[in-house]
Design a protein around this nucleic acid. Structure first.
Lengths: 240, 240
DNA sequence: ATCGAGTGCTTGTCTATACAATCATAGATA
DNA sequence: TATCTATGATTGTATAGACAAGCACTCGAT
């Protein structure tokens, strides 16, 4: 078997990792598929065995592969992506309430990241990323401002999406399978810009949800979601 | 500096990993503490650099360490992990951060419920319930006001508990096995009472977590937890 | 037919070495 | 003084080689 790793970027072990993850996520290699042995990869790729070993070892630690000493390396069974990882789609949520959903696109482009956002995206200082700001409306009343920065290395075509037809979350779920999510909640006084967009009253705080999503082992996007503070949000009900 | 890794088990890189994690979790090495360089570890432990490098690299990937090329390796800031729905014990959380936990008991008694609270507890108008208000402190700085009403039909001895020794959440978990939990998050401007208790600045919003817990088929308690809005709270991290 | 030893392939770990990239700092220069 | 430059320390990656340990399979002895 011959592989083409030319399209991948970064160090060698990372190229091999990305290549394998792509094979798995594209469905070329199904669960229980046996990978070439380290020796074969060394021969075909002309990498040293330590480099191949690192790639496979890390992918095993990340849950993509299962390795059995003396036997071989296999694509792992799909992990149950429980209902926790559901990123709810605000458009569907509004429509579920039989209300009208609409969106205002405030920003949709590509720009240099601030230091803070570069850090949160784990990109180097001065990198560029896609940036979108969208106001989600329910019956023409603003219910959420979504400010999002997207890693172009993970989602190169984010700039081409028409957000009047599909929400960013919807698009991202489709093109960048969710691996990991981080949520943080804050209460903040809105900036004047957010205050205007959400039609907030004087002295009304807003609920801020910071969300980071991982895909392909990298951070795919960081989103800041602003909600009016006086309306219940983020409700959650759990039965043991 | 000399290390003793004799007590550790397994391969060499694992011994070094365990040793470092123990130093961190025992509080010997605090966040931002600089570790010996790879070169120094190689010299002192007589391991090869690749072995030392693997240990440090994996601990960085696991979030224990932060490595900066050209500078050094440092103990990472504590990541607030844990689940939204986990009923976390705030006292343990503070102690996990190696900080001092203390509590001020503002109210601890039994009183008639307001209409709203009676509804939320699904008790009839005019019923009585236990009521406690406690300020939780980290290093003597208030970090949470816990206002709680407890259903005496489910937890008859709530009034006898000494909250200087055990937190309400701790006690309830023990005597009323958790069946169901409901959470709601809000951002609110604090009342003057809350503002005073949390030492909030003028115009600083607070993050409010409303929690209802069920036990024995009934609502055991309703809690309102107030946090300063500018400090991160309710962090949540999921891996697929 | 059954058991057991040997053999070869696989992964797991360790070493010694090398070079690259990043950063802080001291020293030289304008 | 301010700025540039060289240097050393540190981490990041890659290589070739070695031995250990786990497993499947074959083949011979019983």
């Amino acid at each position: 078997m011959t592989f083409t790793l030319e399209t991948e970027v970064g160090p060698k072990y990372q190229k091999l990792k990305s290549f394998i993850v792509n094979r798995i996520e594209d469905g070329d290699w199904l669960p229980a598929h046996q990978l070439p042995s380290e020796h074969e990869l060394v021969r075909d790729l002309k990498f040293s065995r330590m480099t191949v070993n690192r790639a496979l070892r890390e992918l095993a630690a990340e849950g993509y592969l299962q390795r059995v000493p003396g036997v071989g390396t296999f694509v792992a069974e799909l992990q149950s992506s429980g209902h926790f990882l559901e990123i709810h789609n605000i458009a569907d949520e509004v429509r579920d309430r039989r209300h009208e959903y609409s969106a205002d696109i405030i920003i949709n482009g590509r720009s240099k990241l601030s230091t803070e956002n570069a850090n949160r995206l784990q990109l180097s200082q001065g990198s560029e990323a896609f940036h979108s700001t969208i106001v989600h409306m329910e019956n023409h009343i603003p219910i959420q401002v979504e400010d999002r920065h997207v890693n172009p290395a993970v989602v190169p075509d984010y700039g081409l999406v028409d957000f009047t037809l599909t929400t960013p979350a919807e698009y991202l779920l489709k093109v960048a399978p969710l691996q990991e999510v981080e949520h943080t909640v804050q209460a903040r006084m809105p900036t004047s810009r957010i205050k205007k967009l959400l039609h907030l009253k004087e002295n009304e705080p807003c609920l801020v949800l910071l969300r980071r999503t991982w895909s392909q082992g990298k951070i795919a996007s960081i989103a800041t979601l602003y909600h009016p503070g006086d309306r219940y949000e983020l409700s959650d009900h759990f039965k043991a």
